[in-house]
Write a protein that binds this DNA or RNA. Structure first.
Lengths: 221, 221
DNA sequence: ATACGGATCCCCCATTTGTGGGACTTTTGG
DNA sequence: CCAAAAGTCCCACAAATGGGGGATCCGTAT
């Protein structure tokens, strides 16, 4: 039945926490820790071979590294669940993490007694959040369109570029339109993709249209 | 100054008209006829080498061949102007031709006295239309979304595919979603592009969204 | 002064896309 | 039943795209 144990991996730069999570997993029945890395790059290199089902990701890795890396991590193992672990419940990071594809978000203080259940929940498609997190999430969601805000992260030039993308123009046409190199357009697009957290022109355009007219004015306007 | 003459080409299956247009061009000062073909395939083979500036295209080639071929012709010589010539002013064909990239549309009866000016106009970026044509164009435009009709030219499967494209999915994802080969998805897409008269996924999605909700409901609905 | 974001451009590389064929089976409408 | 349309799959090739670097220049903020 070692085959049926839930394969859990850990990323935490703090050795003590990392190790205690590892030991906790292996001690719990039904879980096995298949990896525990200190840094995201280490994990990125390993998880494609390890194929964990759940990744416990510490929010406290140097500044925003952990949150930024969620898309990359999930792309390596698409149906791996990412569970954020954090000490504080700074809502800014909650939002950032969830927008980037985190599946759960637990504050560490009450993590240990909830973690086993949370891991099982997340594998069943749930989004386990500790109560303090979900309270803030709900509060923020009643009046905010999470994606619209992303647009003002775009620089003026990037806005001009995505506007043209949203007219169906290809890179070469946009370059000619603005009298710049196609390489510049590609650079702008790559940054737009990163900021909008998408991977293709079409996805970017869809998010752009949603953001620019959440109420739904015709594309021609 | 033979270099500064406007290079005109003709496609017309009726020999008498074709020849009279050729002679007319060469007789007019400032024009030279650089080609006169009976069929579209003949022209397609020749124009890349000839590089005409203006192509006079008879609408009366066997059924829809001439209109259908406008995109192909323009793709061979991207900045060549295509001027439609027709006896009648059946608005259906006017619309079809303009949608496919025709730059001008003249009815033959009053063509000869306007043709010289129309050719010069079209090269300056204008869209010369005989009055009867423009009247119908305007009438049709006040209350019609010309593109919406195009969607029901799509087969059921093609509609399913473009619906997924409009969710930002890439070919491989669509293939997996429907459990078919990526080649099949590509084939569907090619036919969708042809029917919607576009060249890229993004353009297709934009037309699709416009057609599916001309009033502009949010993409999420 | 110097660090930083924005804008510009360049190279490389793997993958995806767009386009042209062709071919086979299954529906479907006369 | 037969022809047309739809759906499926394949090959091949050029172009476009999506990332990954890195580099330069210019303002502005620190």
């Amino acid at each position: 039945m070692i085959e049926k144990e839930i394969r859990v991996a850990v990323i935490d730069d703090e050795a003590s926490i990392r190790e205690s999570l590892r030991h906790w997993c292996n001690w719990q029945t039904g879980f096995q820790c298949v990896g525990a890395w200190q840094t995201v790059p280490d994990a990125l290199a390993a998880i494609p071979w390890i194929q964990p089902q759940v990744l416990l990701l510490d929010l406290h890795l140097a500044d925003s590294e952990s949150v930024e890396s969620i898309p990359a991590l999930k792309s390596k193992v698409p149906d791996m669940a990412v569970m954020m672990l954090t000490g504080e419940d700074d809502y800014y990071w909650v939002e950032q993490a969830l927008q980037r594809g985190a599946d759960g978000y637990l504050t560490k203080k009450n993590a240990t007694d909830l973690l086993a259940r949370a891991i099982r929940d997340v594998l069943l498609g749930g989004s386990p959040l500790t109560p303090d997190v979900s309270r803030k999430l709900i509060a923020a969601h009643i009046n905010a369109s999470p994606d619209s805000a992303r647009l003002d992260q775009l620089s003026p030039r990037e806005r001009m570029v995505i506007a043209k993308l949203a007219e169906g123009m290809v890179y070469k046409e946009i370059a000619e339109h603005f009298g710049i190199s196609i390489e510049t357009v590609r650079t702008h697009s790559r940054r737009i993709f990163k900021k909008l957290n998408v991977g293709t022109k079409t996805e970017a355009v869809l998010k752009y249209l949603k953001s620019i007219r959440p109420n739904g004015a015709p594309p021609g306007c």
